[in-house]
Design a protein around this nucleic acid. Structure first.
Length: 244
DNA sequence: AAATTATACAACCGCCGCATT
DNA sequence: CAATGCGGCGGTTGTATAATT
């Protein structure tokens, strides 16, 4: 058990600890966090190491004030996704989920409550009170699941379904066997959220990232914003699926 | 100048889904 | 099938610093 170690250090990290963690990641790479404390010679738990690396030590982390366009994007994405900070941060190069969350809580949340306290539940944290936020968590296809289902797909008339209801289907375009059906908005959304784009080093023909970026670009476009939101979120049936 | 309050953000905690045994 | 361990996430807290009284 992780909490059984009473001697594990907590609190602010020292420069020495940062250096040890940095050297460890440089030597062994990111990941296998349970091994990091021993490898680095740190008296910290794996979670503390991971968090310190991801939120502070990792290269290319952008610090300082959020630019106006970043703030705008945060507001839009939060309106779209709710408190899915890691997803939102994924669209802000150099920003961590913790940064985005902190910024929201300190800079935007209060403003938000002030603005909409009369028209909506302040706890909803939404800038547009009438806009429905997508609730389901992203469905990430594990490498194992993908391979199992890819095999099924190849042997079953070009169609297979994973345990997460992520459909592998031939949608008739030139993207190959792994694509995102348009007939089912829920499936479409789930697939859009997928962030795994490589399987055993092979880039998928139609990666989730490609879809994700193009769709988000469209959503972020002011001209298409309303229509896209309507199509996506104002379908009561779809909403009820997510909110039984 | 000292005390108090507000703000910003780093870090912790508990929970979850998934994989493995 | 259950137990366990892991990575990851969002909510929350702790604390240093800034602003105000």
């Amino acid at each position: 058990m992780e909490g059984s170690s009473l001697r594990v250090r907590k609190g602010a990290w020292t420069e020495e600890e940062d250096l040890l963690l940095k050297k460890c990641i440089e030597k062994y790479g990111e990941g296998k966090w349970h091994q990091v404390p021993a490898r680095a010679g740190l008296n910290r738990c794996r979670k503390s190491c991971r968090l310190r690396w991801l939120n502070y030590l990792k290269p290319n982390i952008k610090r300082g004030h959020f630019a106006a366009d970043e703030v705008d994007l945060i507001i839009r994405l939060h309106n779209l996704l709710g408190n899915r900070w890691s997803l939102i941060a994924g669209r802000l190069p150099g920003r961590t989920a913790n940064d985005v969350k902190n910024y929201w809580n300190t800079h935007l949340l209060k403003k938000n409550i002030d603005t909409f306290s009369k028209t909506s539940n302040p706890k909803s944290h939404q800038l547009k009170p009438n806009t429905k936020v997508i609730k389901p968590r992203p469905q990430i296809l594990s490498k194992r699941s993908f391979l199992v289902n890819l095999d099924e797909y190849n042997n079953n008339n070009n169609r297979a379904e994973t345990s997460n209801n992520v459909v592998l289907a031939d949608c008739g375009d030139n993207h190959g066997g792994y694509c995102f059906p348009h007939h089912d908005e829920m499936m479409w959304w789930e697939n859009m959220m997928m962030n795994e784009k490589e399987v055993d080093g092979h880039q998928l023909n139609c990666s989730a990232n490609d879809i994700d970026q193009s769709v988000l670009d469209q959503i972020m476009n002011e001209d298409n914003y309303g229509n896209t939101m309507d199509e996506l979120f104002l379908d009561e049936e779809l909403w009820n699926v997510f909110n039984p």
